[in-house]
Design a protein around this nucleic acid. Structure first.
Length: 439
DNA sequence: GCGTGTTTAGATGTGG
DNA sequence: CCACATCTAAACACGC
């Protein structure tokens, strides 16, 4: 579904996040199984999911990733510190980065290379703004988030935006205002600071989880023009692979893109106007990724003087980055998954793991039966859990976040690594469309 | 002045 | 070609 940004928190060098597919030996818990093409819909990725928190070697990107396992990003604490552009240094060819393989072969890109969006200022993340906003919201671990915090998270986790023309912020605001899935929460009168807060409308969050899409847009990659020429030169010199770290884990990409698709502005709007079918019918559209007209106009710093102390605190929590674990937590804690009954469940394309080896923080979690689609006759209305407080809502935004956990992995797994399922999937799943404009 | 928020208009890429 | 999704740009208002 998605391209996963390297949003690893600060001290994760010792942590490894891996996925394990247990093969198809497990119980046939999935009544009708799942279409791999509907990763999120089916949540098959959940089944594939296993987080191993082990103190494995600190060597970033050790070649040990040959199994598709990947260490967490070795990103420095300060994104800026890791920012080659900020340092006036060229992007280090061959620099170890976090993800793994790819569908980049379509572009003649070398597999096993990848884009570290957190440190790579050259490539625009293939996520819609809505997706970025959602990610920021999720990472905030709060039910609401300020605009500046959204900016902050994005710039912290996507190097591209630190150097891009700040007009992207306009787009963010535009998206917040226009996208129905985002709700403005006015600031209390006694609350200092500018502007209000934003949150995801649980109604849409519900539907997000209820109906995933059948198709997903392809993830074009946009390259900063300022780097394009250099890249082109590198490519022509046969140095393409090293100069352009361009590998995207196929499955993780699918997952993230799927998420992106559901959170897409138009999809949400369609939902609001036409109900869930709008998404179910979902047409797939590829998002254009026009090249920015300007570049380096106004690099943004991570800290905004506009932020109140509270906001700074909030931003501090954003360091936790994208946290998918809460989704699993919520699931485990009894979130009614019958919502997924609405999903169109189709046979899997491959017999990959039916049993789930879900290990988080070193503890193994048996995927509860209710994770799987329930009986077909379960009325949606019967999902008495007030689907305004749905799976996504609760886990994604309103989950009682564990604030004081020390281990970063629990709080902020690098989603790029979280979804590194590459080797767990058949080859054709890695056969992703072209990443988009590659110069 | 600046950040925030809303709104409008247009461009662009893709699928049907 | 058209509809759609997404992005970009800009104008404007508001409040601190």
């Amino acid at each position: 579904m998605f391209d996963l940004p390297t949003v690893a928190p600060l001290d994760m060098e010792d942590s490894w996040v891996t996925f394990q597919a247990e093969g198809d030996q497990g119980q046939d818990s999935f009544s009708s199984s799942v279409n791999l093409d509907d990763s999120l819909t089916s949540l098959q990725w959940l089944q594939e999911f296993s987080i191993l928190n082990a103190n494995v070697g600190k060597t970033p990107s050790s070649s040990g990733d040959s199994h598709g396992y990947r260490h967490l990003s070795g990103a420095p604490c300060s994104p800026l510190a890791a920012d080659p552009a900020c340092l006036g240094m060229p992007h280090t060819p061959g620099k170890p980065i976090s993800s793994s393989t790819s569908r980049a072969s379509h572009l003649g890109l070398q597999p096993m290379e990848e884009i570290d969006y957190k440190t790579n200022p050259h490539v625009k993340p293939p996520y819609s703004y809505a997706t970025l906003i959602c990610m920021a919201m999720q990472a905030s671990k709060k039910t609401k988030i300020t605009l500046s915090a959204i900016y902050k998270w994005i710039t912290d986790n996507f190097c591209y935006f630190r150097h891009a023309d700040p007009t992207w912020q306009n787009s963010i605001r535009h998206n917040l205002s226009l996208n129905k899935c985002f709700i403005k929460v006015p600031r209390e009168k006694d609350e200092p600071g500018k502007g209000g807060f934003w949150k995801i409308d649980p109604q849409y969050a519900d539907r997000l989880m209820n109906g995933a899409m059948k198709k997903r847009r392809l993830p074009p990659v946009q390259i900063h023009p300022a780097f394009a020429s250099a890249q082109a030169a590198a490519s022509s010199n046969g140095n393409r692979a090293s100069a352009w770290q361009m590998s995207v884990n196929s499955e993780s990409h699918k997952l993230l893109k799927e998420f992106e698709e559901i959170t897409s502005e138009q999809s949400w709007n369609a939902l609001g106007e036409h109900g869930w079918n709008a998404i179910s019918d979902g047409k797939s559209h590829k998002r254009k990724q026009p090249l920015p007209k300007r570049m380096f106009k106004a690099p943004r710093l991570s800290s905004s003087p506009m932020l109140s102390q509270e906001e700074q605190t909030e931003l501090g929590s954003l360091k936790g980055d994208f946290d998918w674990e809460v989704i699993f937590d919520s699931s485990i804690n009894g979130v009614n998954f019958s919502a997924f009954e609405d999903l169109e469940v189709t046979p899997p394309l491959s017999p990959v793991s039916r049993s789930v080896d879900l290990t988080v923080h070193g503890k193994h979690i048996d995927c509860p039966q209710q994770w799987y689609p329930m009986g077909q006759d379960q009325a949606v209305a019967q999902n008495s859990l007030d689907f305004d407080e749905t799976f996504l809502a609760t886990s994604f935004l309103q989950h009682p976040w564990e604030e004081n956990r020390n281990d970063y992995l629990s709080n902020s797994a690098n989603i790029e690594q979280l979804f590194d399922l590459n080797d767990a999937f058949p080859a054709e799943l890695n056969d992703w469309p072209a990443l988009g404009s590659y110069i």
